[in-house]
Simulated scan of single mutants.
Amino acid sequence: MQVDVFDRVIKNAINVMENSKYQVFEICESVRAEREALNNELQLVIEETKKMIDTVDRFEVDYRRSRVRLTEVSRDFKRFNEEDIRAAYEAATQLQAQLAIHREKELHLKHRRDDLQKRIKNVDKQLERAETLVSQFGVVLEYLSGDLNQVTRILESAKNRQLLGLKIILAQEEERKRIAREIHDGLAQNMANMVLRTEITERMLAKEAYNAVKNELSDLKLSVRSGIEEVRKIIFNLRPMALDDLGLVPTLRKFVQDYEEKAKIRTKFEMVGKEIRLPSGMEVAIYRLVQETFSNVHKHAQATHVTLELTFQQQMVKLTVSDNGMGFSTENIDKKIANGTHYGLMGMRERVELLEGRMDIESTVGVGTKVSMVIPIKSDSREE
């Protein structure tokens, strides 16, 4: 390919990426505005709900008093005549109707509040995906906008190609760190809503509305537990902090132990050779590869045992994951991966190729599967 043709292709790609980036940015701004509007509406609904609960409480007290009054006038015929009984009955009936109407309004407001919270959660997910796309566009444009000769040298140099892959992986991990921080900070809003619901429950408890309190507390407890579990899981999956603090081997050992406990699949971890601290991006990539491989075993293999073997050598790191699952036919497996039939394997192979590695798959139906990944270590990419 001639340089001028290559340059024209690059420029066209940059133009398309720039236009797409601005479009996604506009989507981000629109989603942010929608989120703000939904949040304002939610606060109004929460306030209306609190007021309606107070109103219902007052009507319940008045209705109970009217029932007591009706019972009193109905029993004492000496003190009260039929007109008094009729008036007491009409008052009780009217209060009962008003109570039913306001209870229905309270229920409607609660449903509306829950619906708004779900919509805000969905909007947050859309915003997260859009911001991820903007960040990824920026990473790609940074490399495409560089000097053409520099791009050519990168493509011709094996060492620089690996460094390019490491930079892309590091950029992805930085984005995951940012998302993790945003999720952590955004949790405060959800917790504030839970606090408001707790205050409402306390008021209901003071009014002795025990059945309503019980239902509200049950829903609140489930929401808190689910939210905390989900946030912890997302934050840990986005960035396992143990990689930075302890290194690859202890992190993988802990991952295997947790996997055995959660998946109920017996696991074994073996390390061969002397551990070498690798660049952060490479360690993250290896961790993601193990994570994806074990996830595939859990989803598809129906295995009862899985083994991870991590081998350190002078010039390479080798990962081998073996299971005793149902296996599959490897006929034309490379073609199927290339065509996107096996998305998980395709993503793993792309990640390995970014590091200039090689991935091999051996599988026999009814026996099990063995996935081997070899990643070269450049002499200047070690960390003592």
Score class of each variant (00 low, 15 high):
residue 8 R to G: 11
residue 14 I to Q: 14
residue 15 N to W: 08
residue 17 M to A: 13
residue 20 S to Q: 03
residue 21 K to C: 12
residue 21 K to Y: 07
residue 22 Y to G: 03
residue 26 E to G: 10
residue 27 I to W: 07
residue 30 S to G: 05
residue 31 V to T: 10
residue 31 V to Q: 14
residue 37 A to L: 08
residue 39 N to S: 14
residue 49 T to G: 05
residue 54 D to H: 15
residue 60 E to N: 13
residue 62 D to N: 13
residue 65 R to A: 15
residue 73 V to Y: 01
residue 80 F to M: 05
residue 81 N to S: 10
residue 82 E to Y: 13
residue 85 I to V: 15
residue 88 A to Y: 10
residue 93 T to E: 14
residue 94 Q to R: 11
residue 97 A to Y: 15
residue 99 L to K: 05
residue 101 I to A: 08
residue 103 R to T: 02
residue 122 N to L: 13
residue 123 V to I: 06
residue 124 D to T: 03
residue 131 E to P: 03
residue 134 V to R: 04
residue 135 S to F: 09
residue 135 S to I: 04
residue 138 G to E: 05
residue 139 V to A: 06
residue 140 V to E: 01
residue 140 V to I: 07
residue 143 Y to F: 02
residue 148 L to A: 08
residue 149 N to P: 04
residue 151 V to K: 12
residue 153 R to Y: 04
residue 154 I to R: 12
residue 156 E to I: 02
residue 157 S to P: 00
residue 159 K to Y: 08
residue 160 N to Q: 12
residue 161 R to S: 03
residue 162 Q to K: 12
residue 164 L to D: 01
residue 164 L to E: 07
residue 165 G to E: 00
residue 169 I to Q: 08
residue 172 Q to S: 10
residue 179 I to E: 13
residue 181 R to E: 13
residue 181 R to N: 10
residue 181 R to I: 02
residue 183 I to M: 11
residue 185 D to H: 11
residue 185 D to I: 03
residue 187 L to G: 03
residue 187 L to S: 09
residue 188 A to G: 05
residue 202 E to T: 09
residue 203 R to P: 02
residue 206 A to E: 08
residue 207 K to A: 07
residue 209 A to E: 09
residue 218 S to R: 10
residue 225 R to L: 14
residue 230 E to W: 00
residue 232 R to T: 14
residue 233 K to L: 06
residue 233 K to N: 10
residue 233 K to Q: 09
residue 233 K to S: 15
residue 237 N to Y: 05
residue 237 N to L: 04
residue 244 D to R: 04
residue 245 D to V: 01
residue 246 L to H: 08
residue 248 L to R: 03
residue 255 F to Y: 14
residue 264 K to F: 11
residue 271 M to C: 12
residue 272 V to K: 15
residue 284 V to E: 14
residue 288 R to F: 04
residue 288 R to A: 06
residue 288 R to I: 06
residue 289 L to A: 13
residue 295 S to N: 11
residue 298 H to I: 08
residue 303 A to I: 12
residue 311 T to S: 15
residue 314 Q to I: 11
residue 320 T to V: 12
residue 321 V to I: 14
residue 324 N to T: 13
residue 324 N to W: 07
residue 326 M to W: 06
residue 327 G to C: 01
residue 328 F to W: 02
residue 333 I to F: 02
residue 334 D to P: 05
residue 336 K to V: 05
residue 339 N to T: 04
residue 340 G to S: 04
residue 340 G to A: 10
residue 343 Y to Q: 10
residue 343 Y to A: 14
residue 346 M to D: 01
residue 348 M to Y: 01
residue 351 R to P: 00
residue 353 E to M: 05
residue 360 D to V: 04
residue 362 E to M: 06
residue 364 T to S: 09
residue 365 V to Q: 02
residue 365 V to D: 00
residue 367 V to S: 05
residue 367 V to H: 06
residue 369 T to Q: 02
residue 372 S to R: 09
residue 372 S to E: 10
residue 384 E to V: 03
